[in-house]
């Protein structure tokens, strides 16, 4: 919690605050993970700024969590973008949030093509809709599936979907 941001990132944080007033909510760090918490409405613009001005050319990881039962959580979903500056080896995690009943964020596929399948996975597992995504379909589960299994209120053993199949006997074939 107490680690300091390196000067480059501090300057970057100040630049982001100046460019998008009030949208950079806070900065936290924990064991080498440096995080910017940003407002969802400007998340796409801030990520674009970080890519073009901050040098974070690569999106290493994008996923989400459902904070339904998390202690002292205010928002239902948190989405993280792990960025990497390929030239200097710096990492930065940008976190934003989404809420029921209509969890929506702007897609970052126009910035990083690699986000395409990761956003589809988040949509599949949590039901967070990414605006302007070129091909937002379910990816791991069948198209006909109902529900979002990684939400905390979905039972681990499912709702009977794993045993709704016809049974073949040996005499039938």
């Amino acid at each position: 919690m107490s680690e300091e941001f390196p000067p480059v990132l501090q300057a970057l944080a100040e630049a982001v605050s100046a460019e998008f007033p009030g949208r950079l909510l806070s900065r936290t760090s924990f064991r080498g993970n440096l995080r910017f918490h940003v407002c969802p409405d400007k998340a796409h613009e801030i990520l674009k700024y970080l890519k073009t001005r901050g040098g974070f050319g690569m999106l290493v990881e994008l996923s989400a969590a459902d904070y339904l039962q998390y202690p002292d959580a205010e928002d239902r979903y948190g989405v993280w973008y792990c960025l990497l500056d390929v030239e200097n080896g710096r990492r930065l995690i940008v976190k934003t949030k989404a809420n029921d009943p209509d969890p929506t964020l702007d897609s970052v596929v126009d910035l990083w093509e690699g986000a395409n399948w990761m956003e589809r996975e988040v949509y599949d597992m949590y039901g967070i809709v990414f605006r302007n995504h070129p091909d937002l379909r379910r990816i791991l589960l069948p198209d006909e599936f109902v529900g979002h299994p990684l939400r905390r209120d979905y039972p681990m053993r499912g709702k009977g979907e794993r045993h709704n199949f016809p049974v073949l006997t040996r005499a039938e074939g």
Binding site: F145, V146, K159, G160, H163, N164, T169, R170
Partner: peptide, 30 residues
């Protein structure tokens, strides 16, 4: 002679009807 299902009892019967959801897959019979 093997005209009966040989596996264990279907698990679906253990799940309450109101909790079940429609099976995935585009096949109407199942």
């Amino acid at each position: 002679r093997r005209i009966r299902p040989e596996g264990p009892r279907p698990l679906a019967l253990e799940v309450p009807q109101e909790l079940q959801i429609v099976a995935p897959g585009n096949y109407a019979s199942s």
